[in-house]
Design a protein around this nucleic acid. Structure first.
Length: 768
DNA sequence: GCGTTTTTCCTTTTT
DNA sequence: GGAAAAACGC
C-alpha cells in the first residue's frame, strides 16, 4: 500500500477501517450517534478512488441535506490526489431526482422547465381542489389534506394510487379523488411537488429501460447516508439505482429515525438484511463526540423504545459534567435562564458553540427576545427563512413564470404585484375561462389580452402584463443571472413600489432584494444558470444555512440532525410539547419523539442542559394549565442528572393567561384527565428524589396558580381537554365549556367534522 | 379595483 | 401575539 493510503486509514478505528475497505457486496453500517459516520462515508469514497481505481463519477453518494453533500464533497476532494478524472457525485435524493427529471421530462409528459411547488403552493392548489369538490374546510383542512396526500405519495408508486394509496384509511375513496384532482392540477401547470420528484424519478427508472440502464452504468458504487430516514419510495429508488452484485453501502442508525411523518420507514433499516442478499452488517459503537454522562443519559432515554436493534454506545471521553435540568416557571424565564448560562460560559472565554434546540418553530421567540436584549449574537434556522420572505418569493415567482409559463401558482401570486389593475373579478373570470377551455391560466391571460370584445379597463392591464412577461422571457436565457434579476426587479415595478412605500419594512425588503442579487452574482461565478438558481431556491433546506462559525444557533430538533455543538440546550421538555401533544395517542409516535430526544441530546459535545417550564403561553386547545415535565426527563438516571430550580418569579400570574383559557370560568378549569398522563406520580416522585423539583405550593402564591389537581369529575362534567365520543360526529376534544343558567354549552373539535357547538344535555356525549 | 381595518385562526416536525 | 383572510369604505 502506498504511504498515502496508510495515512488516511491511520486515523480510523478497526471497525471504521473495516467499513471503509469492505467491498464484497451490500454493506449496512449501523453507526451510533457521533461514531464517525461521515468519516466512514468520505473515507470510503476516497478509498474506492485512490485504492480500488474506481472512476470518481461512477460513485454516487446520497445524503440528507445539500449542506452535508457539499461538506462531504469538500472533505473528499481534499483527500484525493490530483489528476483524477471527474468528481464523485454527492447529492440529496431530491436534487438527484430533479436532475434526472430535467433531462428526461418529456418521457413523462412534462417539459424540462417544470416548476417545483413548495408547501405554500401545494396548499393553495389543495384549497382549490377542495373547493371544487365542495368539501368544506371544517371537514378537511387544505394543509391536512396535503400531508395525508404526501404520506400516501411517499409510500406508493403512481400506478398504485388507485388501489394501494390510503388503503388503511376509512375515507380512502374521498382521498383518492382529492389526490387525482390535485395531481391533475399540478400536471396542468407543468409542476411537481417534492414528492413528485421522487415519484416521477422512480417511474422514469422503472419504466424506461434505457434510462435505467444508462444510470446503472453510471452508478457502480452507491452510498446512502441516514438510511433510517428513507421512505418506501426512496427504497424503491435505491433498488433501481443499483443492481446485483450491489456495491451498496447504507449508513444509518435506527435510533435517529425522526421522519416517520414524512413516510420514513424504519423497516427499511430493520429489514435491510432481508432486502439485499449476502449483506454484511457492521456496527460502529464508539462515540467520539460526547462525554460519558451525556452518552449515558441519552442511551437511557432511547433504551425505552421497543423497535430498535440492541447496541451499546461507549466512549473513551471524560465523564464530563452532570447533565443539568433547568426547571423554570414560564417560557420567558426559561429563555432567560438559558441566556444567563450562555453569558456565564462565554465569560469563561472559551470559543464554544451553543445550540438551543426545540420541538416546534414557534418556541424560538422568547429566546430571540432575550438574546437580543442581552447582546448575545445568535443565528436562527428555519422559521421564516430567506427564501420564504414575501419579496424573495415574489421575484422567484416571476422567474418561475418566465421559465415555465404553465406555472399557475407563480402567475397567481405576481400578476397583480405590484398592483396593475388586475383584481379578483378579472382573476375569477380568467380562472373560469381557463377551466372551461382547458387552458392554463397563462394561456387564458393571453387570450383575454387579445380579445377585442373586452373592455379596455380590463384588457389593457392584461395586455401590458403579457407584453412585459414576453419581453423578459426572451431576454432571460441570454442575460447573466444577477444583472437580469436586477433589471427585472426594476422593470416589473417592484423596486418602485417599495421605494414609494418608503417604510422601514419596505426598505428592509429592498435590502433583501439586494442580497438576492448578490447571491445571484456568486452563483453566476460558479456557472449557475437561472434554472439552477430556481432549483437551489426550491430544494434548499434549513440546515443548508447552518454556519458552524456562529456561536449560538437556534433551530428545531429536526434541523439539528447531523450537527454537533459544545453546549446544547434542549428546551420545552414538557408533556404535550415534547413529546408533542399530537404524538401522545399512539406508541409508534411516542417512540419517534423519544428518538428525536435522543438525537437532540447526542448533539452535545461537552455540556447538555434540558429545560422545561411549568407554564407556557399557548394557543393549543389541548393545552392544560400546569405542565408536567417531559417523561423523557424521568428516563434519565439520577446519577447523571442535576436539577437546577430556576425559582418562582413574580411573573407567574401573567404566564397563566392564555386568551383561550381566560374565557373558561375558573371553576371549570380542570387538569387533563386522559390516560396519556399516567406517569404523573412517578414524575413528581422523580423530581422530589432529586431535591429541588416542584416544591409544595403555599401561601399567596397558590392563589395565583390554577386550582390543584382534582378528580376528573362525574359523568356529566366535561372540562376542556376531555376526549369524547359523539354518536354522529365521532371522536372529539372539548375546547371550551360555558355554563349558562343550568345549561352547559360545549365547544368541541371533532377530528372528522371540525368544530361544533353543542348543548351538553342533548349531546349524548360519552367520555373516552 | 384598491387600500385599510377587523376578524380569525393558529402551531408539529421538512425535502 | 401575529399573519392571513374577510369585511368595509372609497
Amino acid at each position: 500500500m502506498p504511504a498515502e493510503s496508510m495515512d488516511f486509514l491511520a486515523g480510523l478505528n478497526p471497525q471504521q477501517r473495516e467499513a471503509v475497505t469492505f467491498t464484497g457486496g451490500p454493506l449496512l453500517v449501523l453507526a451510533g450517534a457521533g461514531s464517525g459516520k461521515t468519516r466512514v462515508i468520505t473515507h470510503r469514497i476516497v478509498y474506492l478512488i485512490a485504492e480500488m481505481g474506481v472512476r470518481p463519477d461512477h460513485i454516487l453518494a446520497v445524503t440528507f441535506t445539500n449542506k452535508a453533500a457539499e461538506e462531504m464533497c469538500q472533505r473528499v476532494l481534499a483527500m484525493l490526489p490530483e489528476g483524477r478524472s471527474g468528481n464523485p457525485r454527492l447529492s440529496t435524493f431530491h436534487s438527484l431526482c430533479n436532475r434526472l427529471l430535467r433531462r428526461h421530462a418529456a418521457r413523462l409528459g412534462y417539459t424540462s422547465d417544470f416548476s417545483i411547488y413548495d408547501s405554500d403552493d401545494q396548499s393553495k392548489v389543495m384549497k382549490g381542489c377542495l373547493q371544487e369538490m365542495s368539501i368544506p374546510e371544517s371537514i378537511l383542512l387544505p394543509r391536512k389534506a396535503c400531508s395525508i396526500v404526501s404520506r400516501a405519495k411517499n409510500s406508493s408508486r403512481r400506478n398504485e394510487f388507485a388501489t394501494r394509496a390510503f388503503r388503511d384509511h376509512r375515507d380512502a375513496d374521498l382521498y383518492r379523488r382529492v389526490l387525482a384532482l390535485y395531481d391533475q392540477k399540478l400536471r396542468a401547470s407543468n409542476a411537481m411537488d417534492f414528492d413528485d420528484l421522487l415519484l416521477n424519478a422512480l417511474e422514469l427508472l422503472e419504466e424506461h429501460d434505457e434510462v435505467r440502464l444508462r444510470h446503472q452504468e453510471q452508478t457502480r458504487h452507491l452510498l446512502i447516508d441516514e438510511y433510517q430516514d428513507t421512505n418506501r419510495l426512496q427504497y424503491l429508488l435505491v433498488k433501481q439505482l443499483t443492481q446485483p452484485p450491489y456495491d451498496l453501502c447504507a449508513v444509518g442508525d435506527e435510533d435517529q429515525s425522526i421522519y416517520r411523518f414524512r413516510g420514513a420507514h424504519l423497516g427499511n433499516i430493520l429489514e435491510f438484511e432481508k432486502d439485499f442478499p449476502n449483506v454484511r452488517v457492521m456496527k460502529l459503537e464508539q462515540n467520539y463526540r460526547s462525554t460519558q454522562r451525556i452518552l449515558e443519559a441519552a442511551s437511557s432515554v432511547v433504551r425505552n423504545n421497543r423497535e430498535r436493534k440492541e447496541k451499546t454506545l461507549w466512549t473513551r471521553n471524560d465523564p464530563g459534567d452532570l447533565v443539568r435540568c433547568l426547571a423554570s416557571n414560564s417560557g420567558i424565564d426559561e429563555a432567560e435562564a438559558v441566556g444567563k448560562v450562555i453569558l456565564a460560559l462565554k465569560r469563561d472565554g472559551l470559543d464554544d458553540t451553543f445550540a438551543v434546540l426545540y420541538r416546534t418553530n414557534f418556541q424560538s421567540r422568547y429566546f430571540e427576545e432575550v438574546f437580543k436584549r442581552n447582546a448575545i449574537p445568535y443565528t436562527i434556522l428555519g422559521g421564516l427563512s430567506f427564501y420564504a420572505r414575501a419579496e424573495i418569493k415574489d421575484l422567484i415567482a416571476y422567474l418561475r413564470l418566465l421559465r415555465n409559463p404553465g406555472d399557475s401558482m407563480a402567475l397567481d401570486r405576481i400578476i397583480n404585484v405590484p398592483a396593475r389593475g388586475i383584481g379578483e373579478t378579472t382573476m375569477d373570470r380568467l380562472r373560469t375561462h381557463a377551466a372551461e377551455q382547458g387552458l392554463s391560466l397563462w394561456e387564458s391571460v393571453e387570450a383575454f389580452a387579445r380579445d377585442p370584445e373586452l373592455s379596455n379597463r380590463a384588457c389593457c392591464p392584461l395586455a401590458g402584463f403579457v407584453h412585459l412577461v414576453q419581453q423578459l422571457r426572451m431576454e432571460m436565457p441570454s442575460s447573466p443571472l444577477a444583472a437580469f434579476l436586477e433589471s427585472m426587479a426594476e422593470r416589473i415595478g417592484y423596486v418602485k413600489m417599495l421605494e414609494e412605500e418608503n417604510s422601514p419594512e419596505s426598505l428592509s425588503r429592498l435590502g433583501n432584494i439586494e442580497e438576492l442579487v448578490r447571491a445571484a452574482h456568486e452563483w453566476e461565478g460558479q456557472g449557475l444558470s437561472v434554472s439552477d438558481f430556481l432549483d437551489q431556491a426550491s430544494l434548499a433546506s434549513d440546515s443548508d444555512n447552518y454556519d458552524s462559525k456562529s456561536h449560538v444557533t437556534l433551530m428545531t430538533l429536526h434541523s439539528a440532525k447531523g450537527l454537533e455543538f459544545d453546549v446544547v440546550f434542549l428546551v420545552g421538555m414538557e408533556e404535550g410539547l415534547f413529546p408533542h401533544g399530537q404524538s401522545l395517542q399512539n406508541h409508534a409516535d411516542i417512540e419517534e419523539e423519544r428518538r428525536l430526544c435522543y438525537v437532540g441530546m447526542t448533539r452535545a459535545r461537552r455540556r447538555l442542559y434540558l429545560s422545561w417550564a411549568r407554564f407556557r403561553r399557548t394557543f393549543d386547545p389541548f393545552a392544560l394549565g400546569e405542565n408536567l415535565p417531559s417523561r423523557f426527563l424521568s428516563e434519565i438516571p439520577a446519577t447523571v442528572l442535576e436539577t437546577i430550580e430556576n425559582g418562582y418569579s413574580s411573573r407567574e400570574s401573567s404566564a397563566w393567561s392564555s386568551p383561550f383559557q381566560a374565557e373558561v370560568p375558573q371553576k371549570e378549569r380542570k387538569p387533563y384527565a386522559g390516560k396519556s398522563y399516567d406517569s404523573v406520580d412517578s414524575m413528581k416522585e422523580f423530581l422530589r428524589r432529586r431535591g429541588g423539583g416542584a416544591p409544595a405550593r403555599s401561601g399567596s402564591r397558590a392563589a395565583a396558580l390554577p386550582p390543584p389537581p382534582t378528580d376528573p369529575g362525574g359523568p356529566n362534567d366535561f372540562p376542556p381537554g376531555t376526549r369524547v365520543q359523539h354518536p354522529q360526529f365521532g371522536e372529539g376534544v372539548i375546547l371550551q365549556a360555558l355554563k349558562e343558567g343550568d345549561e352547559t354549552k360545549l365547544n368541541i373539535h371533532f377530528s372528522n367534522f371540525g368544530r361544533k357547538k353543542l348543548i351538553q344535555r342533548y349531546s349524548n356525549l360519552v367520555k373516552i
